[in-house]
Design a protein around this nucleic acid. Structure first.
Lengths: 237, 237
DNA sequence: ATGCACGTCACGCAGCTACGTGACACGGCT
DNA sequence: AGCCGTGTCACGTAGCTGCGTGACGTGCAT
């Protein structure tokens, strides 16, 4: 176990990370594995859903991304709010499902992946996701001890993934100190006039700063600018 | 180790969690321990910084919260962006420090807690924080293996903490489906007019929905409404 | 059957936002 | 010396926002 832990933690690129990650689960006879990460709005890679799988039909995998099936998947929706691992089969009891969600679950069931474990994982800047493990006859009864280990491995892999992402991140947006200051107040809901009073500068200057912020962030309104700023970690909570 | 892991995972309230958490680290001769969690803006508990400590002077702890010393603490600032554990002493090399940050670090050093390990932890809705472990003569050389364990324990404790928070959360804001739909488009930066076209309703109706959203969220502008909606997990990424 | 939450719509108005367009000074880099 | 990023400021304007105020139908729950 320590071997895989170390390999995940020290992986120098994403394929290497994925190898270590799947290697671990293969040892535990997990034959269906998926890792899903939906980048937050405002992130530079928003829209690129990450899904790495073992044992899932390739057609389904493609459909999941291209047909935006992940929008109907209730698992990430639940995982976003609740850190504790849960069974797919429990999801109906935990939350009201919409009809697209129900039909999505039926489709998954027809793939022969009826039940499994979802392990929510969390990262910086709202980079959340989950690791899905199908439970088959080999591993129906997962001990608590093993579950803890799965959880630790999953979380560690996700964190390493986020770390690798941020080093690979080419598109680096930088705001000047003054611009950040303005954006912070924008995110607090202040009007240009209010910000000008707070910072002791003219409202026109606030306007100018804001225009440059829009320009740098590639947006054209204060709301998305603020969300993007938070999503990219440019401004602090 | 498994004993503590299980105790953390199954803790039924926050004091119990904290007992299990500190119990684990006491076994490893960690005499200075802190756990810091700054709730995100928009969360119902925003402003209530959580800091649980072992071995820190009580006066410092109070100052940290009351005098908002955490705003000058560069550790959470770094931990927010980078999931991998790091040494406090390394922070100067990793990022330019502002002068309040430098004087904060000096103050900590004078407490006799010169160097230590910061383990970033992440949770749902941007509930991030870190666990700080002072390194003394007893544990200067922490093996990789032990570090992985620390990381797993810290992350698990934080996740359990978030889970407990959400069950203890009394103030539950609920938006109607239509309101959520409107808020999603607000968060995408759409104007009322644009939203009215998208949803096929009149701009006046969008306006009415929005007013009720402001009312429910306790805000009075679209930007904070959107941020609050995301922060509370009311609307999805 | 009487609320209550929800979803829909209307008018007006003060104030704010986004954007076009332009300007000037300071400091660092080449 | 010249360029570029930064920070400051100005004027105008079409369009948008937030809020006061009021209304009506539907459906669920007590």
């Amino acid at each position: 176990m320590q071997k895989f832990f170390a390999a995940i933690r020290n992986a120098s690129d994403i394929p290497e990370l994925w190898d270590a990650f799947t290697g671990y689960f293969e040892q535990h006879h997990i034959d269906h594995l998926c890792l899903i990460h939906i980048p937050p709005p405002g992130a530079h890679d928003f829209g690129k859903v990450i899904i790495a799988t073992i044992g899932y039909p390739d057609a389904f995998r493609r459909r999941y991304i291209e047909d935006k099936l992940y929008l109907d998947d209730p698992i990430p929706d639940h995982a976003r709010h609740h850190p504790m691992p849960f069974r797919w089969s429990e999801i109906g009891e935990m939350r009201k499902l919409t009809s697209p969600q129900i039909s999505f679950l039926k489709e998954v069931e027809q793939l022969g992946i009826g039940d499994g474990l979802a392990i929510p994982v969390f990262g910086p800047h709202g980079r959340n996701g989950y690791v899905g493990l199908a439970l088959g006859p080999h591993n129906e009864d997962t001990s608590d001890e093993l579950l803890h280990e799965f959880q630790a491995i999953a979380q560690m892999a996700h964190q390493r993934y986020c770390e690798l992402l941020s080093t690979e991140e080419t598109e680096t947006i930088t705001l000047s100190p003054r611009e950040k200051e303005v954006l912070v107040w924008v995110a607090r809901g202040k009007s240009n006039n209010a910000i000008s009073s707070i910072l002791g500068i003219s409202a026109n200057t606030v306007d100018t700063h804001l225009r440059r912020i829009y320009d740098k962030l590639g947006v054209s309104d204060r709301t998305t600018a603020a969300i993007r700023g938070i999503g990219c970690g440019l401004i602090a909570p």
